[in-house]
Design a protein around this nucleic acid. Structure first.
Lengths: 341, 341
DNA sequence: TTGAAAGCGGTACCAC
DNA sequence: GTGGTACCGCTTTCAA
């Protein structure tokens, strides 16, 4: 059943039926009611391919996930972000096109999407300090929103969480407990977010006149084994840390394993707190609470990002939208003591 | 730049240009070369919306992810499956449409996709014993492939891993080590896969004349807290288990936490092995190896499922394709001893 | 308030 | 080999 057939069955023109279905005001209410009833009875839905061609809009938003590192979208963070964004897309009538790029040819993927017009806009995630995607997307004139920021966060739209502030507070929390040898297990510092986190960490130390200890700082892809191996080495080395600050719950789990193997009890012998936790899926009780982003806040970020992107698509001439989010701070709700070792 | 403009600039008809671009044989090679060169120079790419309308194919495959349980797609398994499938889709020129359904209205989502023709086929995951989606998709005449099986696995295409066999072997492995009180922490047994896993577990016990111990069997959404709470209760209860068989690495992590809190060392005081592990992301060293699906095997399953689905889309009249996969068995490569307690 | 008709940008059949 | 042309199914002027 297509529009023409539906129209014929009603002795109306396709024009009128289309107008009735799309809520145009110039249709007599009685006619609209008839059309709506018939459409429902016939289980009619407009052909999206035809509609997209006619309107010139794809009604689709692209998420391009680079699979260079092994931990990219597998990261539960990505999944939750997708869920949040997907919710909004569905509500607003947009489809979500997920494009996985293995060979690192993100640029080619964007060019493709822009050239054949299969999306109206794209979401950009995990930007590096000077991310080439931004210049490219501007050149392609494809609406986009960055989740995160680059080193120069001007001239484009983004939503980011206040990473510096979050890590400063987390570090303060550990310092207040009396810790002096705090290890930072960070995400890859090629990414902007990791750079900011480190800055927050160092600022908190500096505020108390402390210098960061190089042997207690590491960054890498946020995997369990990174946490495990690095924590093992640090705990076995000279001047072991009495507390860990992890950039992700996955890393914290690795730390937990290293601690467990050495007979160290979290919350008694060692403090571990982490960012990007997810309270229900991987329980955050790792000897201290997650201190910032939780699963629901990641989802909320996804929702808000989607809303902004849709706004940008609908109003292409709009000036950039930039939002800095302060994340939920659950520090202080520790389930147990976190003493100095 | 569209086809007509490109054709004009070459003094050719759109027909010829289209044929040249799409590799039709009746084009003179010299002409084809000219067209290809011009297309590349002009950075021309055919408008996908127009092409989709003209061909009647969406060149898109839908994955509908129900978000009823909190652990659905957040499960890393889903992500890896998506990655594998996405690889194949990209190679074959298909887009991946990801549709998240929150209110449990999966049926509505499928009807929608079918009615407006935005996908050529859909992937079905995590079927329950008598899954209503299968009848629905048949009725809608939408090509689909089920990852998993229902109770009656006839009349439709599916790819499943040999869950019964896998769990029988895993249980045998623990029995061979001398364990007699083995706990099964399973996924929700409403899902077909969990029922099969349990059957494998019970078959292995029965083969040695052992009866399953009801107080050592539990099933639920595969979360860390399920593993933690259940293992805690079992370990503190009468006749505690000496080994755990977990349906997912996430559950195993929870078990590990419970064990750690009680001062139990894995591989010494307690054995824990799990299915659906992922060797690099969340390290599987939980006092015993993962015994079946690894991250790469999940990805491979995604790839194969995509291939089959595309085959079904291209040949709608094809009889059902059904594949049973035996998973990688890494049991026996334990990193440490797994004695009876 | 309704309808006729011209696109949207390709594909594919049929002539030449 | 190449070109003319009728679709694909809907939206959107423009007229009535």
């Amino acid at each position: 059943m297509n529009l023409k057939e539906l129209a014929d069955s009603l002795n109306l023109s396709p024009t009128t039926v289309s107008r009735a279905l799309n809520g145009y005001p110039e249709v007599r209410e009685e006619t609209r009611a008839r059309v709506l009833a018939a459409a429902k009875a016939a289980n009619y839905a407009p052909n999206s391919r035809a509609r997209r061609l006619a309107t010139g809009r794809a009604m689709t938003i692209g998420h391009v996930i680079p699979l260079t590192g092994r931990a990219e979208m597998v990261n539960p963070i990505f999944a939750d972000f997708l869920i949040g964004a997907g919710e909004v897309y569905a509500r607003e009538g947009y489809d979500l096109l997920l494009s996985m790029v293995t060979d690192g040819d993100t640029e080619g993927a964007f060019r493709q999407l822009a050239a054949n017009g299969s999306v109206d806009g794209v979401m950009v995630q995990a930007p590096v300090a000077d991310d080439p995607r931004i210049a490219l997307l501007k050149e392609l004139d494809l609406p986009f929103l960055v989740h995160g920021r680059t080193g120069d966060p001007t001239g484009y739209s983004w939503l980011d969480i206040a990473n510096i502030r979050a890590f400063r507070r987390a570090t303060d929390f550990l310092l207040d407990l009396g810790h002096r040898r705090i290890a930072l297990l960070n995400g890859q510092e090629a990414f902007d977010f990791a750079q900011r986190r480190r800055r927050g960490f160092e600022e908190a130390l500096a505020a108390r006149g402390l210098a960061p200890l190089p042997h207690l700082m590491a960054d890498d892809a946020m995997t369990e084994s990174f946490g495990y191996l690095t924590a093992s080495a640090m705990l076995d080395g000279p001047e072991p840390p009495t507390a860990f600050l992890a950039s992700s719950v996955i890393i914290a789990i690795g730390i937990r394993r290293a601690a467990s193997e050495r007979g160290l009890r979290l919350g008694r012998d060692l403090s571990v707190i982490c960012h990007d936790d997810e309270l229900s899926y991987l329980n955050n009780d790792v000897g201290g609470p997650a201190f910032t982003a939780t699963r629901s806040s990641i989802r909320a970020a996804g929702r808000r990002c989607a809303e902004i992107l849709i706004e940008l698509i609908r109003h292409p001439e709009r000036p950039p939208i930039q939002e800095l989010w302060d994340t939920d701070l659950t520090v202080g709700q520790s389930t147990g003591p976190c003493p100095t070792r």
